[in-house]
Amino acid sequence: MSMPAIKTELSAATIPQAAAAPVVTMTPKRAPRAETYARMAKETAARVVPPLIVVALLLVVWELICRRAGSSLPPPSKVFKDTRELILDPFFDNGGIDKGLFWHLSASLQRVAYGYSLAAVAGIALGTLVGQSVWAMRGLDPLFQVLRTIPPLAWLPLSLAAFRDGQPSAIFVIFITSVWPIIINTAVGIRNIPQDYRNVAAVVQLNPLEFFTKIMIPAAAPYMFTGLRIGIGLSWLAIVAAEMLIGGVGIGFFIWDAWNSSHISEIILALFYVGIIGFVLDRLIAGLGKIVTRGTAAN
């Protein structure tokens, strides 16, 4: 007698499931495309509008302060009027140092690229050595801690004496300025590699080269990129100062030259470009770090 009872119970139990199935598979209503775009535009505006307002306000204040007769600095309207040609044609080249801003900036960026690349390679290599070996750390760390406090420009006379030329001296100053944070952060990253990863490498019997490329570099990458990001900022700071002294082509010398010819508006324009490029360089390294270290930080 109990058998049929169980059967009805079972069939009764399956009915609500069957009825519920279509409800589960129903897809949520998709928002219309126009609505999505409107939302995106709103989000972008929320980010872009506040800084624009602040910049506009600052320009107005600057204009009001500097418009009076006898003011030592030009107002923004005069800056724009004076530097119109430089802004509109950054590519002219009249020979010598009379070149468009593009050439000055690219000369500076080239020096930074050389010096910074050298610093990145040397910094990661030395940082790995110091992070991996206790004796290397004991021997080198005090040296690093003293050398890194020396201001960039203090190296310039020495490097001019050594290289007897402006270009390699400027590159050396970039190198010596940006290498310290890269070394120190890499060393910290290497020292913080969890023992677990080292054990895995030992059991799998990775050789030293494989251990370096497959474990050390990815495990320490977040620290390395912190160092690389500080380094690029410092090298951009140093190049402008170094170029003021070595002369030739470069945004630093452009500023110095403008000061000597009392073209204050040109100085202001150059500062604007220096700031923008420094910002872009910083973002570039940060973005690169984000791509390379994806998945590394999360455990």
């Binding site: 969890p194 799998v204 495990a219």
Partner: peptide
């Protein structure tokens, strides 16, 4: 590798 270890905290390489 002849004595492979399964570690307590999995120790997978996150990258």
């Amino acid at each position: 590798p002849d004595r492979a270890v399964v570690f307590q905290n999995h120790s997978l390489l996150p990258w």
